[in-house]
């Protein structure tokens, strides 16, 4: 990310707000500590100097567009992950493409605010450049397309009991806080089954059965829509390796129904797990 990116984005946000092209502009602002960032929604051209765009912007901001629906066009900074999230929201009929105005930036990956190490989600990133945008600021960046299935390989090679123990241990630490769901752009249901009023859909006893059921249901429900942004894993306060399940599904879909690269890509075709063909693979039947 270039040194003057913040200034360029501020200038664009000011112009877009002043001209009335957008009603608000979603980006980040500094938080209390050095290198800590927090999402911000700017409504006035006088406030654009709050914006900062650099290698410490760890949150995915695209989903904040949902709470601005109906207020006019929504501007936002769009890295690869934001652009894929917007594609996801458009495909899920949550927003229409013309409801958002994307100021695209090429992204070289974010760093951990507390140590400066590259974020895991960025090290696994397949699209650093936006896949859709209304304008670009700065140059596009190289796409290294790193191998992201290392952990899936490791878990697949386990004996069934070992694998079971791995996932039981993982879900036993789930806090049932639903941060994974709330930051996920593919989790855009108006009402989640976990919030169902009728008692019994999801036990509230914080037991392993409940957290495992929650984790697996969420993984399946987002399976062919996951944009691999890794926000669930970043947001999880307990550090659950949630992307293992998502990466596993992406690769399985590729192998069974492929070619498939992941959700939120314009060229991905129909969502594989929600379209039906008589010649679909049924190797599990």
């Amino acid at each position: 990310m270039t040194a003057n990116l913040t200034q360029q984005i501020r200038d664009r946000a000011r112009d877009l707000l002043q001209s009335g092209t957008v009603s608000c502009f979603i980006a980040w602002e500094p938080a209390r500590f050095e290198h800590w960032r927090t999402p911000v929604t700017i409504e006035s051209p006088d406030e654009v100097d709050r914006i900062v765009v650099d290698e410490w912007c760890d949150q995915l901001i695209a989903k904040y567009a949902l709470q601005r629906r109906g207020d006019g066009r929504i501007g936002m900074v769009a890295r690869g992950c934001e652009s894929r999230a917007v594609e996801r929201l458009v495909a899920d009929r949550q927003v229409s493409r013309q409801d958002v105005y994307l100021v695209g930036v090429g992204c070289t990956g974010m760093l951990d605010r507390d140590g400066g190490a590259p974020l895991k989600k960025c090290e696994e990133c397949q699209r650093r450049n936006p896949v859709t945008y209304d304008e670009m600021v700065g140059e596009t960046v190289e796409e290294p397309r790193p191998y992201r299935f290392g952990e899936v390989d490791r878990i697949e090679s386990m004996e069934p009991e070992q694998r079971r123990a791995f996932f039981d241990r993982m879900f036993s630490q789930c806090a049932m806080c639903f941060a994974c769901r709330n930051v996920c752009p593919a989790c855009n249901c108006r009402s989640c089954f976990a919030d169902a009023e009728r008692v019994g859909w999801l036990e509230k006893d914080f037991g392993l059965d409940a957290s495992r059921y929650w984790g697996l249901m969420r993984a399946f429900h987002t399976g062919d829509r996951c944009i691999e942004c890794g926000e669930c894993e970043r947001a999880c306060p307990m550090g659950l390796p949630l992307m293992t399940l998502m990466h596993k599904q992406v690769r399985d879909i590729d192998r069974l129904f492929g070619p498939y690269e992941g959700g939120g890509l314009s060229d991905a075709g129909p969502d594989p797990l929600r379209s039906y063909r008589t010649d679909d693979v049924e190797e599990f039947m």
Partner: peptide, 13 residues
């Protein structure tokens, strides 16, 4: 509230 994602993290930690 614009920033908060209303997960339960703050209350559970």
């Amino acid at each position: 509230a614009d920033t908060c994602v209303t997960c339960g993290t703050c209350t559970f930690v």
